[in-house]
Design a protein around this nucleic acid. Structure first.
Lengths: 216, 216
DNA sequence: GTCTATAAGCGGATAGAC
DNA sequence: GTCTATCCGCTTATAGAC
């Protein structure tokens, strides 16, 4: 396979090997950081999970902290994407329902991202603090304004937008972060697509009944 | 103060000094384990927080793991208490409302307990796994049956009890575990009694609207 | 009960050969 | 790019003086 130009820089400035190894390291790091948090994770454990020696890993990421920051950035994109898509010009019920669906999809598809984010919050968010007070706060402010507008138009019950958003975050994330507990108490093995469909239906039902205006 | 019998065993088999030092260690351990999880916490950090030397701490708890188990047990009692109090013979709306209130009270009053529990879940609950599948599962089964009964009597909308319970756990815990994020996004400093009262009102409102039968 | 000293091993990170 | 060997500080836990 390796023929003429194994380490010729590519479009993004990385060789094939670089791109492949960095991806392998990131994937391994996500599971270890998710399990044990920043301080509890060890470079050696990550290297072994990536099937690589410790010095070789540190050739790609110059420190444990740098690797953590890279993982956290990746995590953040997955975490924020769904909220951005809420659209003021569409139907509130559809938008909230779709938001819950996308959040649960994210929890199901990227459980480690959710757990890394949770772990960073638990320790007081030393790395993400600025981001929370900046980008995230203003994003939530914009979407809260959308919800306020829907309420003013009588299309949603008069609930506090910020606590609605917190409730959706909390609930959807719960199924990823507390998966062991959910499985133990619900009496399930690993959660499959059918389980997540059921979760989505149950959560949407309670939340939407809770925020839609009464017809009668 | 220290007069005649400083190390005479007391009713619970512990001297005054033992009781006092164990309490100090537990309190210190709770904050450190809450911040960094089991693996990320260090005995030295806990000892310093308890204003005590490391060997002296290990005189009271023979290992880091033993100390962690003691802290987790204490945590668990706080975490489980509110659910046990739900009473089938009383009014569903009152019982659910009080349950949410007690849970938020626990999050406000014992944020470290909540975060330690969360951290244990994140790493897959190696210490609590048996407990989850045993005591907790059967407790939830009993309370789910109560909710099912209320639904059968037409006093609650037909929602899935287990997801209702998960939603209440997730939401109330969110305000303790993700406190940094809540504060940053909500634009508050430390959350005071007034803030928690507001949280309780907002959460109760959405959840209760979501599960009470429609009058019309 | 509390301390200092220390054992024994793990942690992140680097040097330098290939 | 990848490895072995290694530095050195930190970690849990114990020994033994006071």
């Amino acid at each position: 396979m390796a023929t003429v130009e194994p380490q010729v820089p590519r479009a993004n400035g990385k060789t094939r090997i670089q791109a492949r190894n960095e991806a392998r390291i990131m994937a391994a790091a996500e599971t270890v950081f998710a399990d044990h948090g920043f301080r509890g994770a060890t470079v050696d454990e990550i290297a072994q999970a990536a099937d690589m020696s410790k010095p070789n890993l540190l050739y790609y990421f110059k420190s444990k902290a740098a690797l953590y920051r890279a993982v956290l950035e990746h995590t953040l994109r997955i975490w924020l994407e769904p909220l951005k898509e809420i659209d003021a010009d569409k139907d509130p019920e559809t938008e909230i329902r779709n938001y819950i669906a996308r959040k649960i999809e994210a929890s199901a598809g990227h459980p480690n991202a959710s757990r890394i984010f949770a772990s960073e919050m638990l320790r007081g968010a030393p790395v993400l603090a600025d981001h929370l007070r900046g980008d995230l706060k203003s994003l939530v402010a914009r979407k809260s304004a959308v919800i306020e507008q829907w309420i003013a138009e009588g299309r949603l019950a008069p609930i506090d937008p910020i606590h609605l958003i917190f409730m959706i975050w909390a609930t959807t994330q719960h199924y990823a972060d507390f998966a062991v507990q959910v499985k133990a108490v619900w009496g399930k093995g690993d959660l499959g697509p059918k389980d997540f469909a059921q979760i989505e239906a149950a959560v949407s039902e309670i939340v939407l009944r809770g925020i839609l205006p009464r017809k009668g």
